[in-house]
Structures are given as structure tokens and as C-alpha cells.
């Protein structure tokens, strides 16, 4: 399969390093502004939920974390697949950079979900909730990916083997997702008083969308930052990097 011509620039480490360095502060700035605005909207402007009161405000960090945790895994797998098929080292570098970020957002989704669960369900951890189970399994997928990478000494091999795991994982993600939903539909536990689609008003929804966007930008900011580090590590013996580090004494 042929790649479009512009794509080849993404194979050039100095170019991508420079691009990441130039874009990073902008994306980071946008992320911080959006998250600040979304937090203000979520905590102050949005009215309390008529059933859950103010505890529902956790939604403004919980849903964006969960969203980013899933998006990150898909991007990881796509990057890994690109790296595997076209032997693009930078795509592997991106996949490696995503794993710890994605895992931390998955953790965040679980942690905020647990805190939210206490006032809503009366318990921090509800084993019968499909979304909790799904996020937990997603966390295991991230950890498995990282553990597999860490086990290899040879970076090239680690890249290619973990890429296969990433693709196998992403193919399984929807299967796991639907199977836990199906599983839960047969376990109608009496303890859950799931609020059937609480009517979400516009002034509740807008901060949520802003937060999701803010978290997405934040994710890409982190990704660019980690990618830069990863590029430096992989390009140690090259001339452009030597010139770069000599120009900017640390």
C-alpha cells in the first residue's frame, strides 16, 4: 500500500521533534483553558442534579477520563499498526508514549467512578457494573502492554511484538465491552438503583463537552511531550540530536 507523500515527513525524527516542540505549548495552553472553563462551568454554573444533587458534578471529570482512556487505546493500536506495517519507528515511539498516559486516565476513570459510586450506589466498588468491569479490563490491557514491552531488552523487537499485542487488544476491546454489558443484563442485581437516563439539560451538557475536549487536548499535549523524550532516546547516536543538545546546554 502506498502512503501519501506528505506522510513521509512523519518518518523524519528531527521534523517531528521540532513539530512536537512547537505545537506542545499551544495544545497545552488550549487544554488548560478548556479544562479551567469546563471546571468552572461544571462546579459553578451547572445546576445541581434533581436526584443526585451536587455529587453528579463528578461527571465532569469522570466521563472525560473514561473517554480519553478508550480513545488513547485506539490511537495506541493504530500507531502500533502503522509502525508494524510500514516499519515506521516514530509510530512505535508514539504507541510507547501513549501507554502510560492511557493507563493513568483509565485509573482516573476508575478512581473518580469509585468516589462517585459511594453517594450514588452506597458502595465504592460495584462488581456488577459493566462500565467498571470494562475500565478495569482496559487497565489490565494497558498494564499487559507495558509489561510486555518492559520484558524485552531489544527495543526493535519490543516495538514489533507489543504492536501485535496492541492490535489484538483493540480488536478485543469491543468484544469485551459488549460481553460485559450482556453479562450485566442477566445479573439484575437489586442493589443498583440506576437512574434511567437523568434528563441532562443544556447548562449541564455544555461544560461536559468542554471538559471532554479539554481532556483530549491535554492527552495530546502529554503525548507530544512524551514523544519528544522517546525520540531523543531513540536518536542518541545521530548528528542532529548532538547538534541539538550542544546548542542548548542543560
Amino acid at each position: 500500500m502506498k502512503l501519501p507523500r506528505w506522510f513521509h515527513r512523519f518518518g523524519s525524527p528531527p521534523w517531528v521533534y521540532g513539530l512536537a516542540g512547537a505545537l506542545g505549548p499551544w495544545i497545552g495552553g488550549i487544554a488548560i483553558v478548556l479544562i479551567a472553563a469546563g471546571t468552572f462551568g461544571g462546579l459553578v454554573l451547572a445546576p445541581p442534579d434533581y436526584l443526585q444533587g451536587d455529587s453528579f458534578r463528578i461527571i465532569y471529570i469522570h466521563v472525560p477520563s473514561a473517554y480519553v482512556s478508550m480513545m488513547a487505546y485506539v490511537i495506541l493500536a493504530v500507531a502500533a499498526a502503522i509502525g508494524f506495517i510500514w516499519r515506521l519507528k516514530l509510530a512505535h515511539a508514539a504507541a510507547v508514549s501513549i501507554a502510560p498516559i492511557g493507563a493513568s486516565f483509565t485509573f482516573l476513570a476508575l478512581a473518580t467512578g469509585a468516589i462517585w459510586g459511594k453517594p450514588t450506589w452506597g458502595t465504592f466498588w460495584q462488581w456488577t457494573d459493566p462500565r467498571i468491569m470494562f475500565e478495569l479490563l482496559l487497565l489490565f490491557l494497558y498494564l499487559g502492554y507495558m509489561a510486555l514491552r518492559a520484558a524485552f531488552e531489544d527495543r526493535d523487537k519490543a516495538d514489533r511484538v507489543s504492536a501485535i499485542l496492541g492490535v489484538v487488544g483493540v480488536v478485543n476491546v469491543p468484544i469485551i465491552h459488549y460481553s460485559v454489558i450482556w453479562w450485566n443484563s442477566l445479573h439484575q442485581g437489586p442493589t443498583i438503583s440506576r437512574l434511567d437516563g437523568p434528563t441532562i439539560t443544556t447548562d449541564m451538557l455544555v461544560p461536559l463537552l468542554v471538559m471532554i475536549l479539554g481532556f483530549t487536548f491535554f492527552f495530546f499535549w502529554l503525548l507530544l511531550s512524551r514523544l519528544q523524550g522517546e525520540i531523543v532516546e531513540r536518536e542518541q547516536a545521530t548528528r542532529w540530536l548532538r547538534e541539538l543538545v550542544e546548542e542548548s546546554p542543560g
Binding site: 479544562i35 444533587g53 451536587d54 453517594p119
Partner: peptide
């Protein structure tokens, strides 16, 4: 927070912590 301070603030606190730690660790490793 309408009586839910014990839940809302720790949730936002842990989120802030994880976000800041992420930035810090990415920059440090770079």
C-alpha cells in the same frame, strides 16, 4: 457542595494530581 463535599473535592483533587503528575513525569523523562 450540597453536602457532597467529601466526594466532589477528593475526586477533583485526585484528577488534578494525576494530570499534574503526568505533565511532570513526561517533562522529567524528556
Amino acid at each position: 457542595m450540597g453536602g457532597y463535599a467529601a466526594y466532589v473535592w477528593p475526586a477533583y483533587g485526585i484528577t488534578l494530581l494525576v494530570l499534574v503528575l503526568n505533565v511532570w513525569s513526561a517533562r522529567r523523562s524528556h
